[in-house]
């Protein structure tokens, strides 16, 4: 403390930044943004407890209807250790949902890539599908949930279809963009040398398409997951979305909040532990393409100044993650 004081006393107070150094340590710590960030969590907990009390008092019902942070923590701990009142424990429900997500993901990638390549290569094919793909892109997951649950009933088919329908427009649009950004020269040259169309697709198109395919996979997974949860909620008999609704129907707020946290944690893990390292590994050989510049005339994305320097993928994800 004294060392800091003498040091700052010796230094000439020319820049405004230096002058703050003269503040006593306690005050400096109090003012630091890092402390503020740490303080956020206790502030939320206190706010939570106070508003619990206020709500219970003002409406005059038993406050046990509301959940306390400790209850939520206990619930999450019990779920993680596999101890649950619900028909299936956390791992089983997420397992069921992940299987559906995987199946839907594979279908949407295969069909979407085929359609996307077609749309990128031929203007006629593009014009044929364009408006419908754009409409699909803006369709809320809720619409599919209600529609498909009536047609397909409770089972695996509805959720898988929902994943496909939610993810496929993003795959198509990205792949199409990838095809359009393939180096024209290489294509022309291979045509001039009489390379067969199949070989051309394999050796010219696919390598340059790869970053776009990866971005498409990312979308298909994260948006498909959101669609999956919603359809399981309305037309399912098991899976993560259904279990979420199970706690809602049982009117157990701690269960609903706990499951919400699992969803958020799952999304974070999927993004940071699974997708991010894979993308870093896969694109190590071409660092400039680590973040492909995906441009799309997306009906659902508003062009807006903020985040303009970030890749468009973040924007879409933000928009789409909400429904």
């Amino acid at each position: 403390m004294t060392a800091v004081m003498t040091e700052s006393a010796q230094s000439s107070p020319q820049s405004p930044r230096r002058s703050t150094r003269r503040l006593p340590l306690a005050l400096r710590v109090l003012r630091s943004p890092r402390l503020a960030r740490v303080l956020f969590l206790p502030a939320v907990l206190i706010f939570w407890l106070i508003s619990n009390k206020l709500i219970a008092d003002s409406w005059g019902f038993d406050s046990s209807v509301l959940a306390t942070p400790i209850e939520v923590w206990d619930f999450m701990y019990a779920e993680v250790t596999g101890d649950t009142v619900a028909p299936a424990n956390l791992y089983q429900t997420f397992g069921i949902s992940l299987r559906r997500l995987g199946l839907g993901f594979v279908i949407s990638m295969t069909v979407g890539t085929t359609l996307g390549i077609g749309m990128g290569l031929s203007k006629a094919v593009n014009a044929f599908f364009h408006d419908w793909v754009m409409a699909l892109l803006a369709m809320p997951a809720l619409a599919w949930a209600l529609f498909l649950s009536l047609i397909l009933g409770f089972g695996d088919k509805g959720p898988v279809w929902a994943v496909v329908l939610a993810g496929i427009p993003f795959v198509i649009v990205n792949v199409r963009e990838g095809v359009r950004s393939t180096p024209r020269d290489l294509f022309d040259m291979s045509t001039a040398f009489g390379v067969s169309p199949l070989k051309r697709i394999r050796h010219v198109l696919l390598p340059s398409l790869f970053p776009f395919l990866f971005a498409a996979a990312r979308y298909a997974l994260s948006i498909g997951w959101k669609g999956l949860v919603i359809i399981e909620l309305f037309g399912g008999q098991d899976g993560a979305g259904w279990t979420f609704k199970f706690w809602y129907d049982a009117h157990r707020l701690h269960g609903v909040i706990g499951y919400s946290m699992f969803f958020v944690i799952f999304a974070l893990v999927l993004e940071n532990v699974v997708l991010e390292p894979i993308s870093r590994r896969v694109f190590k050989w071409r660092p400039s393409l680590n973040q492909p510049d995906i441009v799309e005339e997306d009906m659902d994305v508003v062009k807006y100044p903020a985040l303009a320097d970030e890749s468009l993928s973040d924007r879409d994800t933000i928009i789409q993650e909400k429904n």
């Binding site: 509301l66 959101k226 949860v229 909620l233 809602y248 707020l253 609903v256 429904n323």
Partner: peptide
Amino acid sequence: PGLIWVLITALV
């Protein structure tokens, strides 16, 4: 996602 908030506020 919005769904989380919808259900939590519905219960509260």
